[in-house]
Design a protein around this nucleic acid. Sequence first.
RNA 1: GCCGGGAUAGCUCAGCUGGUUAGAGCGUCGGAAUCAUAAUCCGUAGGUCGGGGGUUCAAGUCCCUCUCCCGGUACCA
Length: 433
Amino acid sequence: MKKHFKYLVTAALPYANSFIHIGHISGAYLPPDIFVRYKRLNDEDVIFISGSDEHGTAIEMASISEKVTPQEIIDRYHFANKKAFEDLGINFDIYSRTSNKIHHDTAQEFFLNIYNKNILVQKTEKQLFSEKENRFLADRFVTGTCPVCGYEEARGDECSNCGSNLSPLELINPRSKITGDIPVIKESTHYYFPLGDYQEKLEKWLDGKRGWKQNVMNYCKGWLKAGLRDRAISRDLDWGVKIPVEGNDGKVIYVWFEAPIGYISATKELFTERNEPDKWKDYWMNEDTKLIHFIGKDNIVFHSIIFPAMLMAHGDYILPDNVPANEFMNFEGEKQSKSKGTGVLVKDITAKFEPDVIRYTLASNMPENKDSEFVWKDLQVKNNSELAGILGNFINRTVVFTKNKFDNRVPEIISIPETEDGILAFLIRSLRN
RNA sequence: GCCGGGAUAGCUCAGCUGGUUAGAGCGUCGGAAUCAUAAUCCGUAGGUCGGGGGUUCAAGUCCCUCUCCCGGUACCA
């Protein structure tokens, strides 16, 4: 007998510090929407989850530089992006947000679960601290002189001039990128997730996977080959999910640790809304559920290495069945990028074109195996020639033909012979009548 | 630097485990039709599959090498 599966489909949680563009859509949102529509047409049990990822350094920094609260930032992008998906006919069962209480609770529970099993380790490291801002500075928010090439605007993580990988402590004359303040070195203690302990289990798990995309598998193998290391999962930051352990004021759970847990929180929230508060377990704690994460290629490590390891550590939940990651869709020869101001925002394109036209154009050129290219001319051609011309004309012609030749009525079905000779004879007979 | 991916017609892209004259859409050029929307239909030309070498009866497909582009390189998310 055919086994009946449930499908738990997730689309990457967009980070709530920018408006989504059509590259995101063709990479991580249209593919699952098509998949989910297909499953629904087949009357299969499927739920479709996404939401905004609303914590982390970048949002806190944006709020500082714009002089608004983080809440204002995330509200702006959460509602805009939620609407963008709706305007494109991408209908999630729930589009949640990680700032919701249910997510904070779920993420803290998750953290405590593995904390109480003594899985986490603590390490103390030296970090740059701005006394003026009263905060530790993330690597990328420190600039200074590169110790290798002498470039004066090197970032804390990397010198954009010579490409050297750096630690912010190596920079000569470090300063805060936000205020220009000169930081001091201060120690900070953080929780680390011992990713290396899960190396073997992960290798075994991945070995058993069939039908995964080559790009995803290669990427994972690359990480495994290099050897997995402990990963810090706390940050010195105000904006985020608080560490649920005494003595950790000013520390939050690292955004990439809690964000994927958002898939679980959102599922809980969905069934709470439906007045079936325990039904989420039917999906997350059920071996007959296929958990599928649709993402862009930039998210592979988090969904196919780190999150699975977290789920293994926790133990109560199923692991992903597949992680289909698409490549990127570029725009008129350039990468779509918020910082460079290139690309096409969903809110702009939906203001001008019908969702089906956009969906068709994107779907017919999805970056499944390699980066693809979107050009406006393409949309014009696909709309005018393929949709309006070929498909539209076919439908219109059929309707008009029916109207004029069959007296406004759909004629009865007649059986047509299958062989060519038979069809020919049939046509000749019809013409004579 | 190291690891991974990519390069196929003018443009945007398909080509699974190697197997007959390498495909599609659009564009080009040439025709046709009026049942149909400034719509349609049919046909044509166009590629040394990034360069070079190798394995094989057979290579776009496997191996080596070179060039160019992209991603990752663990505190961006």
